[in-house]
Lab assay of single mutants.
Amino acid sequence: QLNAMAHQIQEMFPQVPYHLVLQDLQLTRSVEITTDNILEGRIQVP
């Protein structure tokens, strides 16, 4: 299920590496919260 959620987020934010999306999802278990984390700059994109 997390993989499906990660792919959904990757479609919206292809610039964010998959492993970072998955790592955040493991903590949040939420597409909405992880999306917010990306938008708020809480996930550092190399």
Results as ranks from 00 to 15, higher is better:
1 Q>Y: 14
1 Q>M: 12
1 Q>G: 12
1 Q>A: 12
1 Q>V: 12
1 Q>W: 15
1 Q>E: 14
1 Q>T: 13
1 Q>S: 13
2 L>A: 04
2 L>C: 12
2 L>N: 03
2 L>F: 09
2 L>E: 04
2 L>G: 03
2 L>Y: 08
2 L>S: 03
3 N>W: 12
3 N>F: 12
3 N>K: 14
3 N>M: 15
3 N>Q: 14
3 N>A: 15
4 A>Y: 11
4 A>Q: 12
4 A>G: 08
4 A>P: 04
5 M>A: 07
5 M>T: 04
5 M>F: 08
5 M>L: 11
6 A>W: 05
6 A>S: 04
6 A>D: 00
6 A>I: 09
6 A>N: 01
6 A>V: 09
6 A>G: 04
6 A>T: 05
6 A>Y: 05
7 H>K: 15
7 H>A: 12
7 H>F: 09
7 H>T: 11
7 H>Q: 14
7 H>S: 11
7 H>N: 10
7 H>Y: 09
8 Q>L: 12
8 Q>Y: 12
8 Q>P: 02
8 Q>I: 13
8 Q>E: 10
8 Q>K: 13
8 Q>G: 06
9 I>C: 00
9 I>W: 02
9 I>M: 05
9 I>H: 01
9 I>E: 00
9 I>Q: 01
9 I>D: 00
9 I>T: 02
10 Q>V: 14
10 Q>F: 13
10 Q>M: 14
10 Q>T: 11
10 Q>K: 11
10 Q>G: 08
10 Q>Y: 13
10 Q>A: 13
11 E>Q: 14
11 E>G: 09
11 E>C: 14
11 E>Y: 09
11 E>K: 15
11 E>M: 14
11 E>L: 14
12 M>C: 09
12 M>A: 08
12 M>F: 07
12 M>S: 07
12 M>W: 08
12 M>K: 12
13 F>N: 03
13 F>R: 00
13 F>H: 06
13 F>L: 03
14 P>T: 04
14 P>F: 02
14 P>C: 06
14 P>I: 02
14 P>N: 04
15 Q>E: 15
15 Q>N: 14
15 Q>P: 01
15 Q>L: 11
15 Q>Y: 15
15 Q>V: 05
15 Q>C: 15
16 V>K: 00
16 V>N: 03
16 V>C: 13
17 P>K: 05
17 P>H: 06
17 P>N: 07
17 P>V: 04
17 P>D: 13
17 P>M: 04
17 P>G: 04
18 Y>E: 14
18 Y>T: 13
18 Y>F: 14
18 Y>M: 15
18 Y>A: 13
18 Y>W: 11
18 Y>I: 15
18 Y>G: 14
18 Y>P: 15
18 Y>S: 12
19 H>A: 10
19 H>E: 15
19 H>D: 15
19 H>Q: 09
19 H>L: 09
19 H>C: 14
19 H>K: 06
19 H>N: 10
19 H>R: 05
20 L>F: 06
20 L>M: 09
20 L>K: 06
21 V>S: 01
21 V>Y: 02
21 V>F: 03
21 V>D: 03
21 V>A: 05
22 L>E: 06
22 L>F: 08
22 L>T: 03
22 L>C: 08
22 L>H: 04
23 Q>E: 12
23 Q>W: 08
23 Q>P: 00
23 Q>Y: 08
24 D>W: 05
24 D>P: 05
24 D>K: 00
24 D>A: 03
24 D>M: 06
24 D>E: 03
24 D>R: 00
24 D>N: 05
24 D>G: 00
25 L>S: 01
25 L>Y: 00
25 L>N: 01
25 L>E: 01
25 L>T: 00
25 L>F: 02
25 L>I: 07
25 L>C: 06
25 L>Q: 00
25 L>V: 05
25 L>G: 01
26 Q>L: 14
26 Q>H: 10
26 Q>A: 10
26 Q>C: 13
27 L>V: 13
27 L>Y: 09
27 L>N: 10
27 L>E: 10
27 L>D: 08
28 T>Q: 02
28 T>S: 07
28 T>N: 03
28 T>H: 05
28 T>I: 02
29 R>A: 08
29 R>I: 06
29 R>M: 13
29 R>G: 14
29 R>D: 07
29 R>V: 06
29 R>N: 13
29 R>P: 01
29 R>L: 13
30 S>K: 04
30 S>G: 01
30 S>R: 04
31 V>I: 12
31 V>G: 05
31 V>Q: 07
31 V>W: 08
31 V>A: 08
31 V>N: 06
31 V>Y: 07
31 V>D: 02
31 V>L: 10
32 E>W: 07
32 E>K: 14
32 E>T: 10
32 E>S: 11
32 E>V: 10
32 E>P: 07
32 E>G: 08
32 E>D: 10
32 E>A: 13
32 E>M: 09
33 I>P: 00
33 I>Y: 06
33 I>H: 09
33 I>Q: 11
33 I>L: 12
33 I>R: 13
34 T>S: 04
34 T>W: 02
34 T>D: 01
34 T>F: 01
34 T>G: 01
35 T>C: 11
35 T>F: 07
35 T>D: 00
36 D>G: 13
36 D>L: 15
36 D>Q: 15
36 D>Y: 09
36 D>W: 13
37 N>G: 04
37 N>T: 02
37 N>Y: 01
37 N>P: 02
38 I>T: 00
38 I>C: 03
38 I>H: 00
38 I>Q: 00
38 I>V: 05
38 I>F: 05
38 I>Y: 03
38 I>K: 00
39 L>Y: 06
39 L>C: 09
39 L>Q: 07
39 L>W: 05
39 L>E: 05
39 L>F: 05
39 L>N: 07
39 L>V: 09
40 E>Y: 11
40 E>T: 14
40 E>H: 14
40 E>S: 15
41 G>E: 05
41 G>K: 06
41 G>H: 06
41 G>Y: 04
41 G>I: 04
41 G>P: 01
42 R>N: 06
42 R>L: 07
42 R>W: 05
43 I>K: 02
43 I>T: 04
43 I>N: 02
43 I>M: 08
43 I>A: 02
43 I>F: 07
43 I>E: 02
43 I>V: 09
43 I>W: 05
43 I>H: 02
44 Q>D: 10
44 Q>I: 13
44 Q>T: 11
44 Q>N: 10
44 Q>W: 15
44 Q>A: 11
44 Q>P: 12
44 Q>G: 13
45 V>K: 08
45 V>P: 09
45 V>H: 09
45 V>S: 09
45 V>E: 08
46 P>F: 07
46 P>E: 13
46 P>T: 11
46 P>K: 10
46 P>C: 11
